[in-house]
Amino acid sequence: MQWTDQAIILGVRRHGETSVVVEVMTRLRGRHLGLVRSGRSRAMQPVLQPGNEVEVTWRARLDEHLGEFRIEPVRLRAARLMEAATSVYGVQAMGALLRLLPERDPHPHLYESLDVILENLHDPRDAGELFVRFEIAVLNDLGFGLNLAECAATGTKDDLVYVSPKSGRAVSRDAGAPYADRMLALPAFLAAGGSEAASLETLAQAFRLTDYFLHRHVYEPRGMAPSSARDGFVQAALKALARA
């Protein structure tokens, strides 16, 4: 069996003396692993860095086998991704999010989002907003999507300022007022029709929002701890935005 696809490197682990097992997010085939022979060579090490875009050709005798990758570089951006804390932590945190999804399960929109975010991780404002939207997209693909388009109680699309911690649906100011102390804040830039950029306050609210639902629906039921890289990214993004 054989196929070729565009991919982004997520991680690498040693295999024997000279080979490595490479984890990639492919455009059409989801997260995939493959053996790269001589992957620890001087020629391959710069290519097999998280965040790099490559072309992979996978070969195996049977579909369920690990198989082997032949990898060709397309866009080597790992060196640039090492220049800012948001980039360093962001690459690791998004890789951890993608590992929550089943291996070889296609998610082409997540591949496209990952590619866009990797090009903008150096900008704390863009990086923070895009990362939050990526977390929301992953939650949706896991079956726990948030509905932030209209009020759960009235159906209105105006003045949405809360999110119900039970349903994950938006709630308007008037409808949520009696329960305000139990509601999560809905950042203005995530609300339906929101056009303003994230501020330090609303970005912090957004991080708390996605963190809550990831813990409730994913980490706690699976008995998992979240990636420490997410905390590093959140702190770096908020710190950089405060200085901007």
Rank of each mutant, 00 (worst) to 15 (best):
L33T: 12
W3M: 05
I8K: 04
G232K: 02
S41E: 03
T154S: 07
A198P: 00
S19W: 06
V88R: 14
R230P: 04
G232C: 03
L160T: 05
V171W: 02
E150V: 15
L81K: 02
K157G: 15
P46R: 02
A153N: 02
E196F: 00
K157F: 15
R182M: 02
G34K: 09
R61W: 12
P124D: 05
E23M: 10
E220K: 10
A127H: 00
L139V: 00
S199A: 02
L200P: 00
L184Y: 08
G95W: 11
L160D: 01
V47N: 01
V24W: 07
V132R: 06
R14I: 09
P187K: 08
L139T: 02
L184Q: 04
G51A: 05
G95E: 03
D174Q: 10
L100D: 09
V116Q: 04
A175K: 03
F189T: 00
F207P: 01
A78S: 10
V21S: 10
L97S: 11
A185C: 09
R59L: 15
P221Q: 04
N147F: 13
L139I: 05
G39Q: 14
M44C: 09
A149K: 11
R125T: 06
L148D: 04
E53Y: 12
G39S: 09
V161L: 12
L200D: 07
L33S: 09
V47W: 09
S228N: 13
R77D: 13
F131L: 06
H122M: 08
A188Y: 02
R27I: 13
N147T: 09
D231H: 07
E135W: 01
A153G: 05
T156L: 10
Y89S: 04
D174W: 00
A244Y: 01
A180N: 03
P165W: 11
G232F: 14
E112F: 11
